[in-house]
Computed example of a mutant assay.
Amino acid sequence: MIEVLTGTSLAAAAGLNAYLPLLGIGLLARFTDLVTLPDAWAWLTDERLLVVVAVLLVVEMVADKVPAVDSINDVLQTAVRPASGGMVFAAGTTSQTLQVDDPSAFFADNAWVPVAVGVGVALVVHLLKAAVRPVANTMTAGLAAPVLSAAEDAGAVALTIAAVVVPVLAAIGAVTVVALLVRRLRRRRDDRARRRVAAAEA
Rank of each mutant, 00 (worst) to 15 (best):
M1Y: 10
I2C: 00
V4T: 09
T6P: 03
T8Y: 13
A11C: 02
A11M: 06
A13M: 03
A14I: 15
A14H: 00
G15F: 05
L16A: 14
Y19C: 05
P21T: 10
L23D: 04
G24Q: 14
I25F: 10
A29K: 05
D33R: 14
A42V: 06
L44E: 14
L50I: 12
V51H: 04
V52K: 01
L57H: 06
E60V: 12
E60R: 15
M61P: 01
M61T: 08
D64M: 12
D64C: 08
K65G: 02
V66L: 07
D70V: 11
V75S: 07
V75T: 13
V75P: 00
Q77P: 02
T78C: 15
P82R: 02
S84E: 13
G92D: 01
Q96G: 04
T97Q: 05
T97D: 11
Q99I: 11
F106Y: 03
A108Q: 08
A108E: 13
D109K: 03
V113W: 01
P114Y: 05
A116S: 06
V117K: 01
G118H: 11
G120S: 05
G120W: 02
A122Q: 02
A122L: 12
V125Y: 02
H126K: 01
L128Y: 03
A130R: 04
A131E: 14
A131M: 08
R133N: 15
P134H: 03
P134L: 06
P134T: 12
N137Q: 15
T138V: 14
T138K: 07
A141C: 04
G142D: 06
L143Y: 05
V147F: 08
A151H: 01
A151R: 04
A151K: 02
A158Y: 06
A158S: 07
L159I: 10
T160M: 13
V164S: 04
V164A: 10
V166W: 11
V166R: 10
A170H: 12
G173Q: 11
V178M: 07
A179L: 14
L181R: 01
L181G: 07
L181V: 11
V182E: 01
L185S: 13
R187F: 11
R188G: 12
R189A: 09
R189I: 10
D191M: 14
A193G: 00
R196K: 12
R196W: 07
V197F: 00
V197H: 03
A200V: 12
E201V: 12
E201I: 11
